[in-house]
Structure formats: structure tokens, C-alpha cells
Amino acid sequence: MVNAAGRRELAGNLTRAIADAVVAIDGVAFLRPGFADVVRGVGRRSTHPVSGVRVAYEAESEQWRITVQLVTGQGHRALDVTRAVRAAATSAATKVLSSQLEHPPTATGEQQSDAGRSLSVTVTVTGVV
């Protein structure tokens, strides 16, 4: 079992891994920059290390809910980009969960598949540049 502190750390690891995977995708200009957070002054107290990625664990459904907000570059079909983002985010999260949650680093393919089923990924295009 993972306690609250462990879950927060895991959420941070998930966020960073997903962000790294998403920004590497062709067509993703950048993650939602969070300018609104800047002008609000909430950046310093934010517990989220990356503005465009949010990760939360829903105990009721025993599911990790991942929300990715990004800006795409012109010349790339937004739908194709979101599909690639979903695949990359799911893959990155599955690896992290498989290695850090209940499973050892040498998780089997079946265990990784279980981790993938406990994910919910929402992808939103918030802008085009």
C-alpha cells in the first residue's frame, strides 16, 4: 500500500515523466504555460511542478486521472497530436506506476498492462501557435 506522502511523490514523478514524454512529441509546441497562474501569483505555492500536466489519484475508482493541456504548432493536425500525446502519456505513466507503485522495477508485461488500465487520460488543446 502507498501512504499519502508516497502517493504525492508518485504523482510528482508521474507529472514529470508525462511532461517529458509529451513535449517530445512532434506537433506539441509547449505545455499550457500557466501565465494565468503567474499573474495570480500562485506559481510559488503550486504543488504541481508542471503547469500543463495534472495528476491525481481517485480513491473511489482506484484510478490515476491525468489531464494534459497543451498548445500545438500550426501545420500539425490537432487530433493526431492529441492521440500521440495520449499514447505517450499513457506509456510514460505506465512505466512509472509499474516501477514505483506496487510492482518492482522488473515488472512483467502483464503487470504493466494492469497499471495502464488504472489510468484515465484527458488531453486538451488550449491553443495553436
Partner: peptide, 13 residues
């Protein structure tokens, strides 16, 4: 995309 997908775009974009 398709109805079963969870992908969105904001209206302004």
C-alpha cells in the same frame, strides 16, 4: 475525434 476519445480543444483555439 471519436465519441469514445477523451480529447478536446478549446473554442478560442
Amino acid at each position: 475525434g471519436e465519441p469514445e476519445e477523451d480529447a478536446w480543444i478549446v473554442e478560442a483555439a
